[in-house]
Structures are given as C-alpha cells and as structure tokens.
Nucleic acid binder design. Sequence first.
DNA 1: CAGTGGCCCTGAGCGC
DNA 2: TGCGCTCAGGGCCACT
Length: 283
Amino acid sequence: MPELPEVEVTRLSLAPIIGSRVLAARVGKPLRWPMGCDPQALCGRVVGAVSRRGKYLWLPLSAPEGPEGPESGGVPGGLLIHLGMSGSLSFEAKLAQAGPHDHVDLVTTEGCLRLHDPRRFGAVVWGEAQDQGLVGRLLAGLGVEPFSDAWTPEHLRAGLVGRRVSIKQALLAGDIVVGVGNIYASEALFRAGIHPATPADRVGPRRCARLVAVVREVLAEAVQAGGSSLKDFRNAQGQQGHFQLATRVYDREGQPCRTCGTPIRRLVQGQRSTFFCPRCQRR
DNA sequence: CAGTGGCCCTGAGCGC
DNA sequence: TGCGCTCAGGGCCACT
C-alpha cells in the first residue's frame, strides 16, 4: 500500500487537522516501535503543517497550551508516522468505536485522527525534533526526495557506481532516492526500458537521465490518481486511489504488455516480486 | 562493508 | 466449509 504517492496523498488529505488542538490520545496494541511518550503528554498541543520525508509523515506539535494560555513543562515536538505495509490514517469528525486494528487515536478540536494497521509494521514515534533520538535515526541516511532538485541523473549515477545489486534493488533501498517502493520501482523501470535485473553500476548516464525522469513521472501520476489501492488503501478522507488501474507491469504476470503485447513476466529479487516486459526492457 | 536474509504481524486467496 | 500453506505494499538489523 503505502509508497510515496500513498503517503503524499494521505498528507494532502490531512490538511483539516492543521491548527487543531489535541484533546485526547489513545494508544492500542504495540506497533513497530513504542511511541516514546505518555499519550497524555500530547494533550493541549497544537498541530502544525504536516510534512513528508520519504514514506514518513511528520506531524509537528506545539508545546502544550490550554484555553488559559501556555502551560509549563512541555517542549514542542512532533509525531513521526510510518504506515508500514498495511497502515492507513483516517480523519473523521466523530470518534468511532475502535476496531481490533485501530492502534492510535488523536482526538483534536477539528476531528479524530486514527491509525489503522492490521499488520502493525507501521509506527508512530514521538520526537522533540526530526534530527534527534529515534526519529533522527530513522530519518538519517534517507536518499533525496524524488520531487526535489537534488534528484538528478548525476546523483543517481553516483549512487549506482560500484553497486553490484540489481537496479531494482538499488532503487528500492531508499538510500539514493526515497519513496520508490515495489510497485513504482517496477513501473519506473518499465517506462525507462531497463531490465530490472541489470546490475546497478551498468546503468550509464543516458539511462540514469531517463530513469530520473520516469521515477518523477510515475510518482507524480500516482499522486494525481490518489495513489494505488491494491488492497485497501484509502486517504484520510476515506477515498480510494485508482493508479492500480493504470499499472503497466505490476501484478500483470502473463498479461500482454500494453506496448508490444509480449506476456509480462515476474521475477523475485530480494524476496520481492518484480514485474517486467522481456521485450521492452533490456539489460 | 556491501549484500543477504530473517523477522515483525495479520489476512486473503488458493489448493486440496 | 475447513484447514494449511504461501504471499503481500516496508525496512531495521544481525550476520556473512
């Protein structure tokens, strides 16, 4: 579910929470990491503009303040949120009864933010800043943002030099560019005409230029489409995405390539499925 | 030290 | 209808 487009779509759909004040918080079953603070300590804080780094969301929270003015003792901070494999956020006016997979609730003056995550690979972690503590460690070492000026053919090429892993795995690793997950790695390589098993360091400058462009293109199209709802992805307003309908290779094993008609093939790289067209994509 | 594989956890889908 | 097996969007971390 949540690769960069799904996380970005979620971020955009969270606009109504900005400026709200936290009234109550609840934490359910343990997630990948403990939140790292008493949920009660979130009360009275005002939510700032939600940002995204790779597949992480950052929900800034002011120091606690009440109707009678700022209270003593609290410092500003924020919550780093990761949706893992199966997580989704919802933001609704009324707090519904929590189901077995609803693990974090944040009741605010503008609505209720809820993390739903059956597999619990996701996380909500408190940090005083994005470069401190566990939050800092999780964000350290991430590659460049694909929509930023730092995502260039030269940057990609430099990141691939000396790497023996396949280009697919190098893209997925997240230390060169962030946010490209299993679906979009397959899709981008198809658009670039690059065979997914090509050794990373054999992807030269020309193909790097192509790859940089198509990574940006496929991610942007997916955001436009509201993300991919392969199984159950929804944005915080409960709306599904439809990019999965536009997929050219992902999950299309045996079906004809939309360009040349050759049956799409599947291979396994690093225990993850990769889909490609053996005719359109070359090593 | 780059690369590989295990593992966290639950649910859906499939074959028998 | 039911059981057991396999696989699924991510990514940290121990190990080679």
